[in-house]
């Protein structure tokens, strides 16, 4: 198999990796915010449940979680998930990353000085307006570096989808490498992840810069 054939064979896997990455972000970044609100809920059972969810998501391997989402329904309910591999992956990734994003947001919200809330209250802002107009814009700036880290980790974590033999770039690299007894596919995959992360870092840096107009 020529280098070119390998590359084109793996291109499809690259697209799948990018799709998994993008959909995970689109799902988990807003879901993380919902999780923070649930965790801060005044109704204690909801707050506890949310805390337990975060603890499990952070305390067990993502690979294990993916296996549970895919095979769990069969072993628990006898419900075959054949053909639902991608949805299972998405659920696993989104729920896992939402937990991490939630903790990042929480640390950002908690770091806001109380004076900002008080100034807003005196000026008559509603709770919602205070959050949307005063708190959130500042929190976004504060958490951006931590979010960047997480996004870069996600690019690499998509390779865990190979645990379900989903044909993203890492699975393909393993298969082609085995069948062709060549190390080249792994090299191609490595370069792909590196470039993808380079692009991610560049974009995030641009966003951070756009917020540097104030301290």
């Amino acid at each position: 198999m020529s280098f070119w054939t390998m590359l084109t064979t793996m291109a499809d896997g690259m697209l799948k990796t990018i799709l998994l990455f993008a959909l995970t972000l689109i799902g988990s970044i807003p879901l993380g915010m919902v999780v923070v609100f649930l965790k801060k809920s005044k109704f204690k059972p909801i707050a506890w449940l949310t805390e337990a969810y975060i603890a499990v998501m952070r305390g067990t391997p993502l690979m294990l979680q993916l296996l549970v989402w895919y095979f769990g329904p069969y072993y628990l309910f006898g419900f075959s998930t054949r053909g639902f591999k991608f949805p299972a992956l998405l659920i696993g990734f989104i729920l896992n990353y939402a937990a991490y994003f939630a903790e990042i947001y929480r640390s950002g919200i908690d770091s806001m000085p109380i004076g900002q809330y008080e100034a807003a209250e005196i000026l008559g802002y509603s709770k919602f307006a205070t959050f949307m107009r005063i708190i959130l814009p500042q929190v976004i700036k504060r958490v951006l570096p931590a979010v960047t880290n997480e996004v870069i980790t996600l690019v690499k974590d998509t390779s865990l989808a190979s645990a379900l033999a989903y044909s993203e770039v890492f699975s393909l690299a393993k298969q082609i490498s085995a069948s062709q007894t060549s190390f080249l596919p792994f090299l191609i995959a490595g370069v792909f992840y590196f470039i993808a992360n380079y692009v991610v870092a560049w974009i995030m840096k641009r966003i951070e810069k756009s917020m540097q107009y104030y301290n």
Partner: peptide, 21 residues
Amino acid sequence: QFNLFPHHSVLHNIMDAPVEV
């Protein structure tokens, strides 16, 4: 401690509440 809104310009700090609230 003043408690100005750091992400808003001076003018925006003064105008935001009269306009929004």
